[in-house]
């Protein structure tokens, strides 16, 4: 087996993408950070034994998918009576802007649509791999992603291009 790269390169190369996926799937930044942390701890543990030819990004998204479910389940068992405030200073959108609407609408998507959109469009996984992660067929994953994106498009008939003249 060829030697494994230092795990730090995995964090550098895939950390931001996995966080995007967690944010899109979970909606809340705090939850996304919990899921990201659990994902990379689990990945660090398993890293020496991952086959050398494995698709690292698909592997990480698969772990993140499970960790996101764990985070949601933990909330159900121990509900946190705090209003969710996903928008933070680092976000470019102003409150009430169309961006904020998009964010809310992503959270309102049915789970499979949200997951399919995140795994295909944010992580760049082909539909066959998305289907491996969420279950069902590749065609169903493709439909779910397309439905999700169409729904987001429909919510924005006004458009949300920012200052680019459209």
């Amino acid at each position: 087996m060829p030697p494994k790269a230092p795990f730090e390169t995995v964090v550098t190369d895939h950390g931001p993408t996995v966080l995007r996926v967690c944010r899109a799937v979970l909606g809340s930044h705090a939850d996304a950070e919990d899921a990201w942390s659990e994902t990379f701890l689990a990945a660090l543990r398993a890293w020496p034994d991952l086959p050398a030819d494995a698709n690292v990004e698909a592997w990480l998204v698969t772990i993140a998918h499970r960790k996101a479910i764990d985070v949601v389940r933990a909330h159900r068992r121990h509900p946190v009576p705090v209003a969710e405030v996903p928008e933070r200073a680092e976000q470019t959108a102003l409150p009430g802007s169309v961006d904020t609407d998009l964010w809310r609408e992503v959270r309102a998507l049915p789970t499979k649509q949200r997951q399919s959109v995140a795994y295909h469009y944010l992580a760049g996984l082909p539909y066959a791999q998305v289907a491996d992660i969420i279950g069902g067929s590749a065609a169903a994953a493709r439909r779910a992603a397309a439905d999700g994106v169409n729904r987001l498009r429909a919510q924005h008939t006004a458009g949300f291009a920012r200052g680019d003249g459209s």
């Binding site: 990201w36 990379f40 680092e90 944010l122 994106v149 987001l152 924005h156």
Partner: peptide, 26 residues
């Protein structure tokens, strides 16, 4: 005008994009 698929995806990428500070804290 309805945004295109590309616009929606681009916006989603933009909106979920982490800052360097977030990544450093994680």
């Amino acid at each position: 005008m309805r945004p295109t698929e590309d616009q929606v995806v681009h916006e989603l990428q933009d909106r979920t994009s982490p800052s360097a500070e977030s990544m450093a804290a994680l």
